[in-house]
């Protein structure tokens, strides 16, 4: 057991799956010799060679389309979009084909592939490098949409995604990539896709979050306890689709109060879906309106204003207090 960051944890998952299964092939821009712009695939080209770690020409649509063909043929491609902001070139391939092939062929063909992409703000990047548009994928039937929040669950979820019989979109919170380390066992570990977890138990209010936003949610929970003795229960969704609403519903039945936290835009975001689930499954338990602490409905600003856009602990704490005072 070693303490590693998320970049190393994802690398570990890729490396171990590639060792175990020669169907696993990586493809993407600058992922080979260069090890990826975030160094997630560092060392894998040297270890597995150019046939299994493909430095592709610059074309997101082709990376996805080629992966689809590989997956239909029986390989297990894991492709990388350099930034999720460029993955929309690949959206058509994923929506029109990856997501539909099983249904179109009535089960004859399937597309067991993973599309990895770093997402989210907080790294002082250029335009198109900081967004959080997971909901595009989550709204597409036939795809699965997974977002880990820390090194250990990132490793375990990626292994599950690679072994999943259906296409999985795997968003990596780049603000978390090197933010902290966790003990990650060397031995194989998986997490089921479509299951949320309780990141912190509590009785007063339920915070629901995922990915990079889990950190401000947890920070707020600690702050509220220290300052006011308020106990937040924090649910980490891990999968946006399929969405597991069991833990969060149970939690809201206990606390009567819910605050959803994500950096994606508010309107039609994952928070809206979570709120609808709570409203339909825990309506009579609610003591206050469901709050959403999210990115605003504007393009995420360049980094001089980025911090004002991104939900932080202050904003979450404020929402929790207002929810409790309602």
């Amino acid at each position: 057991m070693a303490k590693i960051n998320m970049v190393q944890a994802i690398n570990l998952a890729l490396s171990q799956e590639m060792e175990k299964d020669d169907r696993v092939i990586l493809l993407g821009e600058d992922i080979g010799v260069d090890g990826g712009v975030f160094r997630v695939t560092d060392g894998l080209y040297a270890k597995f060679g150019p046939e299994r770690v493909l430095d592709t020409p610059l074309s997101e649509s082709a990376i996805a389309g080629m992966s689809i063909g590989m997956a239909i043929y029986g390989l297990r491609p894991v492709c990388e979009m350099q930034f999720s902001g460029f993955s929309y070139f690949a959206f058509h391939q994923m929506e029109a084909h990856a997501a539909r092939m099983r249904g179109r062929s009535q089960g004859r063909f399937s597309v067991p592939m993973v599309l990895r992409a770093p997402y989210g703000g907080g790294v002082r990047a250029l335009e198109h490098h900081s967004e959080s548009r997971e909901i595009y994928w989550a709204h597409t039937p036939g795809l699965k949409m997974v977002i880990p929040s820390g090194p250990r669950n990132a490793r375990a979820l990626l292994v599950s995604a690679i072994r999943d019989p259906d296409p999985v979109i795997f968003y990596e919170p780049k603000a978390v990539y090197r933010a902290f380390r966790e003990e990650v066992p060397d031995e194989e570990e998986t997490l089921p896709i479509g299951k949320s977890r309780i990141a912190r138990p509590g009785d007063d209010v339920t915070l629901i979050s995922y990915g990079a936003s889990l950190r401000p949610a947890m920070e707020a929970a600690e702050g509220l306890k220290e300052k006011d003795g308020i106990e937040c229960e924090v649910i980490d969704l891990l999968s946006i689709s399929p969405l597991d609403d069991t833990l969060l519903t149970e939690s809201v039945r206990k606390t009567g109060r819910a605050v959803v936290v994500h950096e994606a835009h508010r309107s039609f975001g994952a928070g809206a879906e979570v709120a609808a689930r709570i409203a339909s499954k825990a309506f009579l338990y609610l003591e206050a309106p469901i709050r959403r602490v999210t990115g605003f409905d504007v393009v995420i600003p360049n980094y001089q204003r980025e911090q004002a856009y991104l939900p932080d602990a202050f904003r979450v704490e404020q929402a929790v207090r207002e929810t409790l005072e309602f």
Binding site: S61, A62, A64, G65, M66, S67, I68, G69, M70, A71, I72, Y73, P77, H92, Q93, A96, H97
Partner: peptide
Amino acid sequence: SQMLHAVGMAY
């Protein structure tokens, strides 16, 4: 859009 699939299969 489908020609890319042929390329992946051929790979």
